[in-house]
Design a protein around this nucleic acid. Structure first.
Length: 547
RNA sequence: GGCCCGUUGGUGAAACGGUUAACACACACGCCUUUCACGCGUGCAUUUAUGGGUUCAAAUCCCGUACGGGUCACCA
């Protein structure tokens, strides 16, 4: 009985060899290939988009290929709709893969791109490993493994299935065959030849040169229940066969590179470049921790959709933590797409990247302020369709009116920056709509002038004597100033500051009274424009109701 | 606990043996202004977690300590 017999017993139907697959998926002649490989376990995590941005950036920058590969080897954790969620998130941010498998359609010559569909491929590789004596079935039960670990911990030994603790590696082929034939459950383990006390040099594109201990663990490469490989083995096979040149993955994988290196060396495959990205972390009180889907809403991409952040803002904010020199580059090249930025992994922070919502907000304000009113209208309408019935109705009443509101103080050199995201638009402009104005609980935000009679006096004087809807902006404001003179307010703030005791107040106070009486708010965009849009009769009706 | 990685203002960070330790966000103040905002200006680390060492010179190199993170699954 030989290893070959064992291999044939375990994989009787596997006839294709590694060499067959190498021919099916030939070398791509130096073309750069990156890949995002999420497991479909729920909503897209912000780390996934973060990595996809880097994948896409490297691929596009080098005329390369960006692959989406679904890692569904863990059926227990699988969530059915998750692939749709992944696709949705990727497409929303224009991170469109060149090769993928979605909705049953395969695009690309290196597929399938879903791991559960690649079972025979993995089996061919495992079969070879068994044949050459570098993999073996292990019959240890979970309880035995637990016992082993407890014993190791107790003796303060390194835990794991290695060396003399890897007892199944010493089984004879005959014994293995007999136990398999008798129906015992087993996993396939890799037979390591490494020595933990020997170090090897490893270059990571982010962390630089590292010295790591060799792997000596006989880790599991194929699971017992679904015969699918574990991550480590799938990484070897898929990234080799898909000809991946750059593996971008989270830092948590750093501690398994010794396993991967031994795997690649065993097959004599060239190692891809590794970019182990810092974890996205979050500060909570005094502790810093990995951002988590369960505790942090902003860890999930749906947070940004639900709150109506424009996609550019999300990308920008992530770019600033990907390479901190990005922001500077972007201010120098305001018209260029981020895809033209020269990403440099060695410039990535090697500690965690703290994702800052404050920064996102500031970026988002900036970006929205530079958009055309029409685009803001369309994008916010799209958002409202999904997330806000109320805003949707406002927009549908009269799109032009809505756009005009958005356009106040917009198309000028220094546009107003008050919209952080689309979910806050309604809060910013509801007073421009009569039904909202009438139905909402509102507080008039009077400032310096609160005396009812004084307010009445100002409003009466202004609307009876001065206000004319047809005035241009300068005339309009000059009239406000004229009224100030008449009522004893300073028309000029400087005059007021010089001799405040001479006046009842200044033009700012008077303007505030007009503003608040019409909008209830002390903070609004340009009053002249607002009055123009509202029109005389609506203004007067509001003024009259006030009395 | 073992192994690995890290630690520069409130935050993201630059600086790769010689700078007043960039820049951005936040914050504070001032100016501008019909309010708020925008914009503009100013301020904001006597010092790079900490203790030693190397050097004419250290945030940068070396060692120790502390603290934080990752990992030690038939999860990825």
């Amino acid at each position: 009985m030989s290893n070959k017999d064992l291999a044939d017993l375990i994989f009787p139907n596997i006839t294709k060899t590694i060499e067959d697959y190498e021919k099916m998926y030939p070398s791509r002649n130096g073309q750069v290939v990156t890949r995002i490989a999420p497991s479909p376990t729920g909503y897209m995590h912000i780390g996934g988009i973060y990595q996809s941005i880097i994948d896409n950036l490297i691929a596009k920058h080098n005329n390369g290929i960006f692959i989406l590969r679904i890692e569904d080897t863990d059926q227990k954790r699988e969530v059915k709709a998750a692939v749709d969620l992944i696709k949705e998130a990727l497409y929303r941010y224009d991170l469109i893969p060149d090769e993928y498998e979605l909705d049953g359609k395969i695009v690309g010559n290196y597929g399938p791109y879903v791991q559960s569909e690649r079972k025979e491929i993995y089996h061919a590789f495992i079969k070879r490993l068994i044949e050459i004596g570098r993999a073996y079935p292990c019959f240890c039960k979970k309880e035995e493994l637990d016992e082993l670990r407890v014993m190791q911990e107790h003796k303060k030994l390194r835990t794991g299935y290695y060396g003399k603790y890897a007892k199944c590696r010493n089984l004879t082929v005959e014994e293995m065959i007999n136990r398999i034939k008798s129906g015992e459950e087993y996993v396939i383990r890799f037979k390591s030849m490494g020595d933990f006390d020997h170090k090897f040099k490893f270059h990571d594109e982010v962390k630089g040169d590292l010295e790591l201990s060799q792997n000596d663990e006989d880790f599991v490469i194929m699971k017992s229940d679904n015969l699918l490989p574990t991550y480590h083995f799938a990484h070897l096979v898929d990234d080799y066969l898909m000809r991946t040149t750059h593996v971008i993955r989270g830092e948590e994988w750093l501690s398994s590179v010794a396993k991967h290196v031994e795997l690649f060396e065993t097959f004599n495959f060239e190692l891809p470049k590794y970019i182990h990205t810092p974890l996205i972390i979050k500060k909570e009180g005094n502790s810093i921790r990995k951002i988590s889907k369960r505790k942090d809403p902003e860890a999930t991409m749906s947070y940004y959709s639900e709150n109506g952040y424009p996609k550019e803002a999300v990308i920008e904010s992530l770019m600033t933590i990907i390479n901190s020199n990005y922001e500077e580059w972007h201010t120098q090249n305001p018209d260029k797409s981020y895809l033209e930025f020269n990403y440099d992994p060695s410039k990535m922070s090697s500690s965690g990247a703290l994702y800052d919502l404050e920064k996102l907000n500031s970026l988002s304000k900036e970006i929205i302020s530079k958009k055309k009113a029409n685009d803001v209208c369309e994008e916010s309408y799209e958002w409202a369709l999904k997330y806000s019935e109320s805003l949707k109705e406002m927009i549908e009443q009269d799109k032009t009116y809505y756009t005009n509101i958005l356009n106040i103080e917009r198309e000028q050199e220094k546009p107003r920056k008050d919209i952080i995201n689309y979910s806050m638009i309604e809060d910013l402009i509801w007073y421009m709509y009569d039904d909202k104005f009438d139905s909402r609980d509102k507080v008039y935000e009077w400032k310096n002038i609160t005396d009812k009679d004084e307010i009445k006096l100002i409003l009466n004087t202004y609307f009876n004597k001065y206000y004319d809807i047809n005035d241009d902006k300068d005339t309009w404001f000059n009239k406000v100033k004229l009224m100030c003179d008449e009522l004893g307010y300073a028309a000029n703030i400087k005059d007021y500051k010089k001799e405040p005791e001479k006046y009842k107040g200044n033009v700012a106070d008077v303007s505030t009274v007009i503003r608040v009486s019409i909008t209830t708010k002390s903070n609004t965009p340009d009053l002249y424009e607002i009055m123009k849009l509202l029109g005389v009769s609506r203004i007067m009706s509001r003024i009259n109701k006030l009395k």
